[in-house]
């Protein structure tokens, strides 16, 4: 008994079914690539305008290059800025209190009778 004894309909479902999954997902790949291209093109002109004033204030000459920096260079720039501020005494004062208050609210107006009653008396 071999797989060849399986009737033609089963082979058809197997072949066509798997083929359709592949084709449909390939269509989605092209759509996603197109979507990515369109969105990045629409977003591209806006980026320099938003970044210009802040960068110019700090380092006017390096402004155009800074905008083109890849995302990998951003953390390095942030660390460099933090070190610069620290060694020049410009680091902001931080509170010495380290206790973390739990501000999570477990109740909402929908499930808390107390919360609802307090609101009624206002």
């Amino acid at each position: 008994m071999t797989l060849l004894t399986v009737n033609g309909f089963t082979w058809l479902v197997t072949g066509v079914g798997f083929g359709m999954v592949i084709v449909l997902l390939i269509v989605l790949i092209f759509i996603l690539k197109g979507l990515g291209a369109v969105v990045s093109r629409l977003a591209a002109p806006k980026a320099p305008k938003a970044a210009k004033p802040a960068v110019q204030a700090a380092q006017p000459a390096a402004a155009p290059a800074a905008v083109k920096e890849s995302s990998d260079e951003m953390p390095v720039a942030a660390i460099a800025m933090a070190l610069h501020l620290y060694f020049n005494g410009a680091h902001d004062e931080e509170p010495t209190q380290i206790t973390i208050k739990n501000v999570e609210r477990r109740y909402s107006p929908w499930n808390s009778k107390l919360y609802g009653m307090n609101n009624l008396h206002r």
Partner: peptide, 11 residues
């Protein structure tokens, strides 16, 4: 979305 080719692996 960042790597649409992943869809092929999913298929």
């Amino acid at each position: 979305i960042a790597n649409p080719k992943s869809l092929l692996l999913g298929a």
